[in-house]
Write a protein that binds this DNA or RNA. Structure first.
Length: 259
DNA sequence: ATGACTGCCTCTGGCAGA
């Protein structure tokens, strides 16, 4: 079973790339972030034409997440823990397979910049809510994949120029501590379980030739419950998508799980 | 040294992104 995550930076601007990549990569499940549109505006027909079922949790202009799956699935929208939160950053699916259900979440964790503002407080509080929710999901003892744009650079190995990111909400010690707290619940970082090399990134800024210099960061992650980690075969970053014309600033990352 | 790009909805410039 192939499960992927991709921050498309507007699904309307990226529908051509999305269709081309779906045909190429042939994922069974896709978690999208930053669709930047309301549910009604999602290009559902184009994706359904490729054999996917679609569930969205969108909002106007900003944020927005979606899950595509070849198998039909049950869906839950929104991250529990704050009824006043209006930002669409979490959607979860329970997907039946021939060997039991797999639970997959598409996560768009808040950026949090600049620090020392309510934006950073929101990021940390959102991470606390994610930790609480993930704890409950782990208790189900199912194969579980928390996939998405975490806006967290886990370690100095995951950034081309660590000094440039010091003090940034993506790399601050408090941010990284909380990410470790999430991992320590019992999750496996799928990419690091498969590949310990430096210089492997999922995001490159549009500015200043960041892509050409491989001045990137690894912030898109697939976190696996023990039951999912047991099935992990490969984790691959589809870096070539960044060379396409008018790309997203993020590229897809995907895993293969044994049936 | 500085700024650098993209997308959105539109007060077509200001915000957000990371």
């Amino acid at each position: 079973m192939r499960i992927a995550s991709w921050n498309v930076n507007s699904v309307k601007a990226r529908i051509g790339h999305l269709v081309d990549w779906l045909k190429q990569a042939e994922p069974d499940v896709v978690c999208l972030q930053e669709i930047k549109c309301v549910d009604e505006a999602f290009p559902t027909a184009e994706v359904e034409a490729l054999g996917y079922n679609v569930a969205t949790h969108g909002q106007k202009s900003y944020n927005g997440v979606a899950i595509l799956s070849k198998r039909p699935f049950e869906v839950m929208r929104g991250l529990p823990g704050d009824d006043a939160d209006t930002q669409s950053r979490y959607i979860e699916a329970e997907i039946p397979t021939d060997s039991g259900a797999v639970r997959v979440a598409s996560i768009y964790l808040p950026n949090g910049n600049p620090p020392l503002t309510d934006k950073y407080d929101y990021k940390l509080a959102w991470m606390d809510r994610l930790i609480a929710h993930a704890q409950g999901l782990l208790a189900l003892e199912e194969p579980l994949v928390l996939a998405g744009d975490y806006n967290v650079i886990p370690t100095a190995k995951d950034v081309h120029n660590p000094a440039a990111w010091e003090g940034d909400a993506l790399f601050l010690p408090r941010t990284r501590d909380k990410f470790r707290e999430l991992l320590a619940l019992g999750f496996t970082d799928a990419f690091r379980a498969c590949d310990d090399r430096e210089g492997q990134y999922t995001f490159w800024d549009y500015q200043a030739g960041a892509w050409q210099r491989n001045n990137g960061i690894r912030i898109d992650h697939l976190l696996l419950s023990p039951q999912a980690a047991d099935k992990l075969q490969t984790c691959v970053i589809d870096k070539h998508v960044r060379t396409w014309e008018k790309p997203s600033d993020h590229v897809p990352i995907r895993i293969d799980l044994r049936a």
